[in-house]
Computed example of a mutant assay.
Amino acid sequence: MRRVVLVAYDNAQLLDISCTADVFDGANRLGGEPGYEVTLATVDGGPVRCSGGLTLAAHARLDQVRGSVDTVVVAGGLGHEAAACDTRLTAHLRRIATDARRVASVCTGATVLAAAGLLRGRRATTHWRWAARLADRAPDVTVDPAPLFVRDGNVYTSAGVTSALDLALAFVEADHGASVARDVARYLVVYLQRPGNQAQVSMFLTAPPPGNGPLRDLVAHIRAHPDGDLGTASLAARAGVSPRHLTRLFTTHLGATPSRYVRAVRVEQAARLLSTSDLPLTAVARRCGFGSAHTLRQAFLAHYATAPSAYRRMLRGSPGSGDVSDVLTGLGRDAVAAPGVSELV
């Protein structure tokens, strides 16, 4: 059995724990060999009260976790900062991680990993709302608030809450293959597996630019008409400002120039069509304002670090969708994070 240790503390997020445990349990039920033996461990071995109000009983104290450990996963939650200050917890975590094949965190569990020194010099992610705080707290960590999860060596960090499902499914795929991971996803009735480089926060869910009505209207126009004339000069004329002033507005409120924002909107629109329709790439490109399927491919590679066809196969679990190392690549450094995230964090 692959020994998995889930590390919890008071005010941990229940979903961070249960999503991970249920994915491994699903793999055990559906033929994953060797299977997983999951242990919930706390500092004193006592129960933990989760932030949602439910209490979980632990299997063991952290000092009882000895010997070989395959995977250690630290949960996130509102209690993450107190947990990060618990020197007993971080010392045991460092010890357990020394010989573990994989070390991971869900959500703000990255704060605990950082406090234990396990993220030093690494790239990591966390819940977008807490990313800036982690970056301030751990300047030796390169914090990327955009992806759902990131791999750096044998250390994995994931975004908020249900990204635990995506990370655990990626572990199952790495251990047992894509077929078992798909079976587990179907068993749990969840979206197969979102790619790790998918943005945590869609630009379609972020708030409109505060305090600027013309820009808010312009953004709505861009989202509603991705196939229209969205050049900077045309957008400036529509807003009644100069192109230079429009660029200042976009940079200030959205963290991107008009052209980069338009490109990001078009790519995300294309991603939505690829995941919800059977339209050929040429039709997707046309509807989203790209001149050709080739231009769409170039933009998609820059934004998601994968080709449109591979993205569609990955979402649908088709053969040839690529292995977990591709899924865990994360956003390329030239990619555009979801506009609006930078101002939120």
Rank of each mutant, 00 (worst) to 15 (best):
G53M: 10
E33S: 15
S342C: 03
T142F: 05
A168L: 01
G228T: 03
H225Y: 05
R313Q: 10
A104Y: 02
L235R: 06
V23H: 06
R186Q: 11
G35E: 09
A97E: 06
T206W: 02
G109Y: 06
H92I: 01
M1S: 14
V73K: 08
C288F: 03
A114E: 06
L6Y: 06
S292M: 08
A138D: 02
T111V: 10
A307C: 01
N212A: 11
T247Q: 13
A270D: 06
V184A: 08
A264M: 03
I222L: 14
G177N: 06
A60G: 04
A114V: 03
Q13K: 04
A224F: 07
P226F: 08
P147M: 01
T295N: 07
A146L: 00
Y9A: 09
Q200T: 09
V23N: 01
Y191K: 05
V73Q: 08
P280G: 08
T162D: 09
G31Y: 02
S309L: 12
S292H: 04
R287F: 02
A207R: 14
Y261A: 04
G53V: 11
C85T: 09
R266I: 02
R286P: 00
L273Q: 10
A237D: 14
G340L: 11
V141G: 00
R260K: 11
R333I: 10
R287S: 13
Y304R: 10
F290R: 04
R61P: 00
L254F: 06
V184P: 03
V112H: 04
R133E: 15
V219I: 15
D140H: 05
L218D: 05
L56R: 04
L165D: 02
V23Y: 04
L296F: 04
A60T: 03
L113Q: 07
S242P: 01
V341I: 14
V189D: 15
A168S: 15
A256W: 12
A236C: 08
T257P: 01
C288W: 05
Q198K: 07
D144F: 02
D25E: 14
A135S: 13
A104K: 02
V150C: 03
G240N: 08
S202K: 06
D323F: 02
V112A: 03
S163N: 14
E33N: 12
L331T: 09
R272Q: 11
G46E: 11
S259H: 07
E81M: 12
T42M: 06
G46N: 04
D166S: 11
A335Q: 07
R129H: 10
V180L: 15
R94V: 00
G35N: 09
G35K: 07
A60C: 04
E81G: 10
D183S: 15
A100F: 01
V341S: 12
T142L: 12
A159R: 04
T87H: 13
R129P: 00
T247W: 11
G289A: 10
L54A: 13
G79S: 09
